[in-house]
């Protein structure tokens, strides 16, 4: 374990890179998810179709392929973003599709009578979503969103492949130099668990906080 404690600063810089990437991408994925989910339940058929197309395309492509496409595609059109920004955009857009599906199923889980009641007191589509359906839907989607957050945290490791300097790449570089794989990778694994376990607990806490008796 000496090699781990001797290089805590390498781990720390990778750790904070992973944390920043996770939080920024999660924010993007929430925004994308809300937009796509709204499209998928909208009264306008073209919007529904476009939302469905986005979800099916993005969910069925490996994240690594999307990263490469974005990275190489944008340089071809003459735009170049930093590795970090590319990561935020691609990881956010990818998980946005999953967030959208979670939100949509959350809206589906709100009992039908709620929507009927909202409509029958004369609220419009957007009013009934805003005041009645969505506030309840958000509560039921806390656990799936939590799962997506944890999956996203783990998936940020793919930034290593396009030369990002996150936790995974820190471990891989240390291993290349010191060739002590077990302690080095175990150290990185523990660092990931330090991120994922508390966020699982935090989402569980939020879930209990916002739970409503049914």
């Amino acid at each position: 374990m000496g090699v781990v404690f001797g290089h805590l600063s390498d781990y720390a810089s990778g750790f904070w890179y992973t944390v920043a990437l996770t939080l920024a991408s999660f924010l993007v994925s929430l925004l994308v998810g809300i937009v796509i989910a709204t499209m998928r339940i909208s009264p306008a058929a073209p919007a529904r179709a476009a939302g469905l197309f986005y979800v099916e395309t993005v969910r069925n492509t490996p994240l690594l392929v999307l990263l490469f496409l974005f990275f190489f595609g944008l340089t071809k059109v003459g735009l170049a973003y930093s590795i970090f920004v590319s990561g935020v955009i691609v990881i956010g857009a990818y998980h946005g599709a999953f967030v959208a599906e979670a939100l949509r199923s959350g809206v589906g889980a709100v009992s039908k009578g709620q929507a009927e009641a909202a409509r029958s007191i004369g609220l419009t589509f957007s009013q009934s979503l805003r005041y009645v359906v969505l506030p309840q839907a958000f509560r039921t989607v806390v656990p799936p969103i939590g799962n997506i957050f944890i999956a996203l945290t783990k998936n940020t490791s793919l930034i290593t492949v396009i030369a990002g300097v996150d936790l995974t790449s820190a471990a891989d570089r240390l291993n290349t130099t010191y060739a002590q794989a077990i302690p080095i990778f175990f150290g990185a694994a523990v660092a990931y668990l330090i991120l994922t376990i508390p966020s699982g607990l935090a989402f569980g806490w939020i879930e209990r906080k916002v739970a409503i008796a049914r």
Binding site: K154, S157, L167, N175, I184, F185, T196
Partner: peptide
């Protein structure tokens, strides 16, 4: 709880050391 990529890198770059 651990990223799959980390696991694969450990296996591919680490196991041969042992």
């Amino acid at each position: 709880g651990v990223p799959l990529l980390l696991l694969i890198l450990f296996i591919a770059h680490g196991l041969p050391q042992y």
